[in-house]
Amino acid sequence: MAKRGAPQRAKSNPIDKGKALEYWKRNIRLILTLLVIWALVSYVAGIILAPVLNNIRLGSLPLGFWFAQQGSMIVFVILIFVYCWRMDKLDKEFDVDE
């Protein structure tokens, strides 16, 4: 992260078109993977399959209920930090970090 007051790089678009396209494709693939998990824990496990999953227990909670009121939110937080971490690596690889 650029520190406040630190000199900033002047180049505004430092990356050629082919590389930019590849960078964007890799970003899209990561986003789609994470959004599939996002939908699985919330809409699938927490809503559509909740009545079925409720026959299984996690601790003393029915599993569908746990996903709906605890698990989905915990996974949401993890998903965002995983995205940050993977994008840090991708930004470095394509030399577009700041």
Binding site: I31, S42, A68, Q69, F76, L79, Y83
Partner: peptide, 26 residues
């Protein structure tokens, strides 16, 4: 609200947190 809705209170729990995944990624 959740106390009186039971399971269905999840509309607020997931609805008002899941949007941040969209914000962060999209």
């Amino acid at each position: 609200l959740i106390s009186f809705m039971g399971f269905n209170g999840t509309i607020y729990l997931m609805g008002w947190t899941g949007g941040y995944v969209l914000l962060a990624l999209l």
